[in-house]
Amino acid sequence: MSTTTELKWFKSSYSGGDGDNCVEVAVHPETVHIRDSKDKRIRPLVVTPTAWAALTALAADSSLDS
């Protein structure tokens, strides 16, 4: 398994430039790592790609209600 330093992290395109409330994601073939961009010392949440796809689909559907 990759360490978090070997992963390529990226922020959402919805993240603001001021650094508030941002998450970073690193995609690996068997896992998706999610972390707080403001405190990288906190251990990332690790989920399966299937779980990540379900979460992002739900978030996309929810954003239509706003």
Rank of each mutant, 00 (worst) to 15 (best):
S2F: 09
T3V: 05
T3D: 13
T4D: 09
T5R: 11
T5P: 00
T5A: 14
T5L: 05
K8F: 00
K8N: 14
F10R: 14
K11G: 02
S12W: 06
S13H: 07
S13K: 11
S13M: 04
Y14Q: 10
S15E: 09
S15Y: 05
S15H: 10
G16K: 01
G16P: 00
G17Q: 12
G17P: 12
G17F: 12
G19H: 05
D20S: 06
D20R: 13
N21S: 06
N21D: 12
N21C: 05
N21Q: 07
N21P: 06
C22I: 01
C22D: 03
V23G: 08
E24K: 04
V25H: 09
H28C: 12
H28I: 01
T31Q: 15
V32Y: 08
H33L: 09
H33N: 04
I34K: 00
I34S: 03
I34D: 07
D39G: 02
D39E: 03
D39C: 01
K40E: 04
K40D: 01
I42R: 12
R43Q: 14
P44N: 07
P44M: 11
P44D: 11
L45M: 10
V47Y: 00
T48R: 08
T48A: 14
P49T: 02
P49A: 00
P49L: 07
A51E: 13
W52V: 02
A53Y: 03
A54K: 06
A54S: 09
L55W: 13
L55R: 10
A57M: 08
L58T: 14
L58P: 01
L58H: 14
A59H: 07
A59C: 14
A60G: 12
A60S: 15
D61N: 15
D61I: 08
D61E: 15
D61L: 08
S63Q: 11
S63P: 00
S63I: 03
L64W: 07
D65K: 08
S66G: 15
